[in-house]
């Protein structure tokens, strides 16, 4: 299986605070990687560097064989002009903790915005595709609703459909269920599980251990800007080798 995401020695600081202290991680095509870790461990920042929402201080990230956000110029990496970064991002779907749907646009308009304005797809075609996506996330009847009329779980499912509309090679989820009422978590996880079964490559930052156990091919445990350990859920979740992993799991389980 080919490598979809290749992260090598990524460092990142906010001022004097070192958030990522040298991250190396490979994700194969069609695999689901779940990133666990206490808050402040750098997992969200890592996810955001993968589509260049966050610049890196050192290190390189390849997605589908392409260096993200930079190009090699002699012995340096030069940040790409925004236009090219934007083009790269259309291959990488991102789902936010707080959904960030556009509140002044209907559900359908939210989904077709990028396909029409970025990929120049004909509107009718994009709308037909959007309706198919809505059906897939179980919201076919909400196409003309405004986001604020929907529950949190429904909004997050629309956000997933919006990310899928660009037909990305990779999907990134940043704590997709953390802003939801407990009874709404299941419907969102079901959609993500369904995507996993269809072989979508995904990296999911989450606190849902049950979801990790059920869906993840690889579980990555991060603490203090480093990857502490990684492996199949049966190892990392059931027989953690590191004390810090054990301590974290004993608190969340």
């Amino acid at each position: 299986m080919s490598v979809m995401v290749d992260i090598r020695s990524v460092h990142k600081s906010f001022g004097s605070l070192q958030v990522l202290k040298g991250i190396d991680l490979q994700v194969r095509s069609g695999q689901v990687t779940v990133v666990l870790g206490p808050s402040g461990s750098g997992k969200s920042t890592l996810l955001r560097t993968i589509n260049h929402l966050e610049k890196v201080d050192r290190g390189a990230i390849h997605v589908d064989g392409t260096l993200v956000g930079y190009r090699r110029s002699g012995d340096r990496l030069r940040e790409l002009p925004e236009r090219e970064v934007l083009k790269q991002r259309t291959r990488i779907g991102f789902v936010f903790q707080n959904f960030h749907l556009f509140p002044h646009l209907t559900v359908l308009e939210n989904i077709v915005e990028a396909p029409v304005s970025v990929q120049k797809r004909p509107r009718a075609e994009a709308e037909a595709a959007a309706r198919r996506l809505l059906e897939r996330v179980g919201l076919a009847d909400k196409a003309d609703a405004y986001p604020r009329r929907l529950s949190g779980g429904q909004q997050q499912r629309v956000a997933i459909a919006r990310a899928l509309a660009l037909e990305p090679r990779l999907l990134l989820f940043d704590e997709p269920t953390s802003a939801l009422d407990p009874e709404l978590v299941g419907e969102v996880l079901d959609v993500i599980k369904d995507l996993a079964r269809q072989g979508t490559t995904m990296i999911v930052v989450t606190h849902e251990i049950g979801f990790a156990r059920e869906v993840a091919d690889t579980v990555v445990f991060m603490d203090d800007g480093r990857i502490v350990e990684q492996g199949p859920p049966s190892e990392v979740l059931d027989r953690p080798r590191h004390e810090r992993t054990r301590a974290f799991l004993s608190k969340v389980l």
């Binding site: 991002r89 259309t90 990488i92 915005e113 990028a114 304005s117």
Partner: peptide
């Protein structure tokens, strides 16, 4: 909300 701009950036909007 700052997240609105981020969401638009993540979707590749110019």
């Amino acid at each position: 909300d700052r997240g609105q701009i981020e969401a638009a950036q993540a979707l590749g909007l110019s």
